[in-house]
Computed example of a mutant assay.
Amino acid sequence: MARDFIFVFILLVTFTIINAIPFHKRTAFFGPCPNVEDTFSVKMDPDPLISPHLTTITITGKEVSGLIIGPLASLVVTIGATGPVQTPSAFPVCNATDCPIFSGTEYTTSGTFILNATLPKSYQVVLTIGNLNSSSPQMTFLHDQILACALATIET
């Protein structure tokens, strides 16, 4: 009888300890950017970001503002706090077979880059789509026009 009580006691203590351990994974929640009508859903791997690590970002969206995403459109990934922590990465949104993307059309694109910067305690991941100004080394968009955007603030 005493062995049964000891077994039950150990079992209850084990369940209590297991329930006390936080198993929630901190993931980035991407929302819309201020002053930009279109946004998209984002899948980031790894989530949260790890440095140095190979990072893949996949976006899926639907053009709704009536703007056309053309063959020159790029997805620009910027990671930073008060300024960028590493050079922004740019990836084409579409290829020649599925461009242009008209209003109401769904699209998916992804890009992989090496995150090799030291991440601060709090930082933002900003994903923007626009037509890059080829004469600007700062990755600015033509006419400062952002076609779609998603933003996440991450605190570690």
Score class of each variant (00 low, 15 high):
Y107C: 07
L115A: 04
Q145T: 10
T128F: 01
I129H: 04
A117M: 02
Y123W: 09
T112V: 04
T128W: 03
G111L: 04
F102V: 13
T105E: 13
D144N: 14
A148S: 08
T118M: 11
V125D: 04
L127F: 02
Y123R: 07
S134R: 13
G104I: 00
G111N: 09
Y107N: 10
N116L: 00
A148K: 09
Y107V: 09
S135G: 08
I114R: 13
S134W: 11
T118E: 14
T128V: 10
V125E: 03
S136R: 04
A148C: 01
S110Y: 11
N131C: 00
L151D: 02
T108A: 13
G111E: 03
L147A: 10
I101V: 14
T128D: 10
L132N: 00
T118W: 11
S122N: 15
N116F: 04
C149R: 01
Q138T: 14
C149V: 02
P137I: 13
P137S: 14
P100M: 04
A148W: 01
S136K: 08
G130F: 01
S134G: 15
F113P: 06
L127H: 02
N116Q: 11
G130V: 05
L147Q: 01
H143S: 15
G130A: 03
Q124H: 14
C149G: 06
V126P: 02
S135F: 14
N116W: 05
I101N: 00
F113S: 05
P137Q: 04
K121G: 15
A148T: 02
L132Y: 07
A150K: 05
L127R: 00
C99F: 11
S136F: 08
S122M: 15
A152Q: 01
Q145M: 14
T109C: 08
T153D: 11
Y123A: 07
S135M: 11
E106T: 15
A117Q: 06
T109Y: 10
T108M: 13
T112R: 08
F113Y: 10
V125T: 00
V126F: 03
T128G: 04
I114A: 12
A152T: 01
C149F: 06
A117R: 01
Y123T: 06
T153A: 09
I101S: 04
E106I: 15
N133F: 05
H143I: 14
F102W: 07
S110K: 07
T109F: 07
F113R: 08
L115I: 08
T140L: 12
P137G: 11
P100Y: 08
S122Y: 04
P137Y: 05
Q138S: 15
I129S: 00
Q145A: 12
T108V: 14
T105K: 12
P137C: 12
N131K: 12
K121Q: 14
F102C: 12
V125G: 03
L115C: 01
T140M: 10
I146Y: 05
N131F: 10
K121L: 15
L127I: 03
A150S: 09
A152W: 01
G111Y: 08
F113K: 07
L147G: 03
F141H: 06
P100N: 11
L132C: 03
Q138V: 13
S134N: 14
V125H: 02
L147V: 08
H143W: 13
F102Q: 15
D144S: 12
L119H: 06
T108I: 13
S110L: 10
F141W: 00
T140I: 11
P100A: 07
T112S: 12
S135Q: 12
